[in-house]
Amino acid sequence: MSLAALSLSGPALRRVSEAEDRPARDARWAGLMQAAQAGNSRAYETLLRECLPLLRAICRQRLREPAEVEDAVQDTLLTLHRVRHTYDPARPFRPWIAAIADRRALDRLRGLARRRGREADLDAAENLGVAGDAEKRLLSSDLRAAVKNLPESQRAALQLTKIEALSLAEASERSRMSIGALKVATHRAVQSLRRKLGGDP
């Protein structure tokens, strides 16, 4: 099936053609991953972009909230990046990446269940009946709760880079996280806070 034919087809036909092309696509993905292991960043980027719909579909089977699905996909990408040397090109690529995505989605689901279990209705009670600055205190309470609910790595990254305003190198040394992981964790922490506190994404 050519690309031109794909672009001309409707969604249903496109799905059929994708199913037909699956073995070829899997072989291509395996090749791209092999190239990525050799350090080819273009092959890696192409591969990851092509895999995103599959990753989202897998994560959606475990998680309902679109934001949680997206976080699980990002977790999957980070995990995949760190264990990319474990892929054996002699084996199909799809089960490898699918297993990682399923594991990350399941972890996120468990984390959600734990967080919900910890949430107490009385959390905001301390703010009741306070005159004047009640709204401000509620906001700061929300912020504290949101920061508290961040994953540990994101909380540490936020603390070091934004609150203590350390350089990335210093923060990396203190947290034992790589600079790349630190950047991603900070970025995701800020995003998550914005989302929870109703700011613009």
């Binding site: 890696y44 980027e45 972009r49 990408l77 991603v184």
Partner: peptide, 14 residues
């Protein structure tokens, strides 16, 4: 969105 940004970041300087 940010997931695509993350892909670019991971691929950069692989």
């Amino acid at each position: 969105g940010p997931t695509e940004d993350l892909v670019s970041r991971l691929a950069c300087g692989l």
